[in-house]
Design a protein around this nucleic acid. Sequence first.
RNA 1: GUCCCCAUAGUCUAACGGAUAGGACACUGGGUUUUCAUCCCAGCGAUGGGGGUUCGACUCCCCCUGGGGGCACCA
Length: 493
Amino acid sequence: MGREKSEEIRVRFAPSPTGELHIGGARTALFNWLFARHQSGKFILRIEDTDVVRSQENFTQSIIKDLKWLGLNWDEGPQVGGEYGPYFQSERVSIYSEFAGQLLKSGQAYLCFCTPEELEERRKEMHKLGKSPRDDEPCRNLSSEEKSRLKKQGRKPVVRFKVTREDKIVVEDLLKGKVVFDCQTLGDFVLIKSNGLPAFNFANVIDDTLMRINYVIRGDDHLSNTPRQILIYQALGFSPPVFAHLPMILGSDGSRLSKRHGATSISYYCEQGYLPWALVNYLALLGWSTVDSQQLFEPDELIEKFTLEKVGKSAAIFDVNKLKWMCGEYIRRFKPEELLELLFPYFGKLFDIPENLSLVERERLLKIVKLEQERIRILSEIDKAEFFFNSHFSYDEKAVNKRLKRDYVIDLLKLLKEKIDKLSSFTENSLEGEIRSAAEELSLSTSKLFHPLRVALTGKMQGPGLFEVAVTLGKKEVLRRINRTLQMLKDIK
RNA sequence: GUCCCCAUAGUCUAACGGAUAGGACACUGGGUUUUCAUCCCAGCGAUGGGGGUUCGACUCCCCCUGGGGGCACCA
C-alpha cells in the first residue's frame, strides 16, 4: 500500500442517485473534501448510476445542488469535467465489460446462469442444511456444452468473480487498523449484472483505479465490501488505494439514521434555514475533533486543522439540538445587513414581503432583524416576528390570562393610550419615561405596566424590548393595537 | 444465524500506561434585563461487566454484554 509522497492526493465522493443527499452522505463528502483541501489534493465527484431501477436524473441534480449549497466544490466531475471522465458510471459501461472480459479469459471470473429465484431458493436450502452458500456455486465449472445449452434456454448470464477459498484478505484500514477476512466467508460475487451493467464492487474498483483515486474515504458500512474489492484489485494487477472507513452516523435511538428520527435530507435543512456552514461545522465534529475540543471553526481554519488521524472509530448520534445551537452562534455573528439578505426569502414566504422595498421599508425590516437576531437559531424561526407585520395577530391564551385578565388592566390601557397619544416625540426614551412616570402616579410596579402592554402590542409574553417594539410599530399602530386589545377584553366579558 | 466493526455523562468528544478523567450541547440553579433571548457565574453528570498484564490501566490482552454494519443481478 506504499504511496509515493510526491503523489497528488485524489479522493472522491461517489453517491448513487437513488435518493437525495442525506446527512450520512454529506458527512462522507465533507471528510473527503476536507482531506483533499487540507492536502491540496483533488476532490472528485462521481455519479454511480448503475441501478437502472432506482436511479433518477432528478436525484443527481438535487445531490449536486445540495453539495454546492454546503460549499463542497469538486475539482472533477459533473458540470466541471476533468481528464479522467466520464464521471457518470452509466457512460462507462464499455470500460467495465472490457475488464470483465479480461477476467473471464484468465479464468478469474466465470459466467453464471442461475436466476435470482433459483439462487434464493438454494440459499434457503443450504441454510436449512446448515451449510454455507459457498458450498453451492454450480456454475463455477460449467463445460462449454452446458453453457451453450443454458444460453439456448434464453438465460442471460452474470459475470461472477471466482473467489479463492483458501486465502485470507487483510484490509489495512487507516482508521480501523488491520482487518482480516477469510475468503471462505465471501462467496463468488457478481461483477457484471445480467443487464450488462457493472455491480458496485466492480465498477468502484475500475473507476477508482482509472481515476487515480489513492485514498478511499467512506462509511464503515463498506468495510465488509473491501475484501471483495481487494480481490478485484489483485486479479487485475491494480494497486489498491489507502482505505479509511469512517464511523457511521446514527439516529437518536442509536439505530440507523432514517426518517423516523426526523429529517435526514440536506435539502430539508436548507429549506428550514440552517446555515450551510453551521451544518458543515457540526458534521465535521461527528467523528472528528481537536485535542482542545474546539467547537466553532472558520472555513479555512477547519481545512487547516482537519486530519484523518484525529477521526475516531465509534459511531456518533446525530443531535439536531446541538446543530441548532451552532447555527444560532453563526446567526449572531452576522452583521444585521447580511442577516437581512439571508432572511428575505423567509420574509417573502412567511409575510408576503416583496424584495423590492423602499428605503424606509427596508430600514424598518433591518430594525426588526436587529431585534430578532439573538432570538433565532435557524432562519425559519423568524416566523416569531409575525406580529410586526400582521395587525390581526392572535393573542396567546396564556398571555391573556396571565397579563391581561386583571382588574386594573382596562383602565391602565386607557390611560396609556391617552398618554401615548399626547406624546409629541415618539422615541424609545420618551415612551419609557412616560410609562415609568405613569407607574409612579399609579403606585404600580413598572412590570405591572410593561407586561400587559407587551401582550397588547404583540399578543405574546416574550419578545424584543417593549419600547423598541413600540417605536418600530409606530405611534399610530401602537394606539390601534391598544384599542384592539381593549375591544378584545370587552368582548371576553 | 454468520463474518466484521465499535464501546468515556442523555448527546458530541479530550486525555505518551502515571492529573481531582478536560471541553461542548442539553439540563438545573444564580446574576444581568421590562419579558424572552443573548451574556456571565455555578452545579448535575461518564470510563458497560468480569478476568488478566503492570508498581500503576480510560488506555494493552481475553471473555461476556450491548449497539452497529455486511452476508443482493442495491450502492
